[in-house]
Write a protein that binds this DNA or RNA. Sequence first.
DNA 1: GCGATCAGTT
DNA 2: CACAACTGATCGC
Length: 364
Amino acid sequence: MSSFGGRMREYPWLSIDRFDRENLRARAYFLSHCHKDHMKGLRAPSLKRRLECSLKVHLYCSPVTKELLLTSPKYKFWEHRIVALEVETPTQISLLDEASGEKEDIVVTLLPAGHCPGSVMFLFQGQNGTVLYTGDFRLAKGEAARMELLHSGTRVKDIQSVYLDTTFCDPRFYQIPSREECLNGILELVRSWITLSRYHVVWLNCKAAYGYEYLFTNLSEELGVKVHVNKLDMFKNMPEILYHVTTDRHTQIHACRHPRVALWICPEMEPFTYNWCQPSTMWFGERTRKTNIIVRTGESSYRACFSFHSSYSEVCTMVFASGMNTSIIFPLSRLFSKLKSSSLINLSSYGSCSIILIIFVALF
DNA sequence: GCGATCAGTT
DNA sequence: CACAACTGATCGC
């Protein structure tokens, strides 16, 4: 859960990624991406009642986030109240205060956040200044600096506050291998195993609902093997993902989730022991100067670096890109405040920055 | 039967 | 160790 309560000091009548408590009185709602810890209260009866009474209240998000959200019947009641905004298209929104009838316009721009499908950052411009809410993001060095909408003319916009994803905003996470490096490391490990025979399979132990899709599509594209997942109806309108995933377990790459995954993939394994070591911890960081992307953690298990969040240096360049005029930075994660006093520590582990791969021989 | 909260998992 | 993102168990209505 983010430490962010949902409201920004400049625009307290907007609520972002939080939908409980005081947020029940917001004039407009924003959802940066479709992860549960950013959706607290979004399907609560109290908010549902509010929507029924306040017909002018809407939820703003990207088209992909809308699609993912409405795949779950639990959120269907939002259907006609969601406004999908195109990414990188400044949009004016009129906000009405129901009590006073007072109206105010604000311009919001969605910027791609690189965290998971549909994830965006929100840039708000209005009477109380320009503020940037990053949500969760993974942007490589320079990606934010290249975003034209953060600039006016040749200069960075005068952003007075940044509400920042501070998950890895700590010198211990100074550098995390790039998306491409991690992808390639995983690709070669998977390739080396599944080319041994058609019975050699890999299971990717994915913990979040969304965020691994670019891994799946790249593995499938490169290896010509579709990835087995539990459900794919959420991707029904995303052909570029849909093409690379399958619910057919007769494939060599699995990302399905099931208490006894091996049996589900291959019931014939029941009488056999399939012992793999569940890795407890893995250390990335300063200890291994040359950062290993893949580390063997057991007989048939590996841990690979894979992060949905920017490293410390990437966060720093993000802050720099949002302008030197920015005077206030509000952390969105808990870690930041705890670590303000901590000095540089030369070891780090990050569970949330990795994916576990299990390799084994299936018997079908 | 539902949601909110806690306790565990990776 | 922490972390994010999630499950599942339990409690209260």
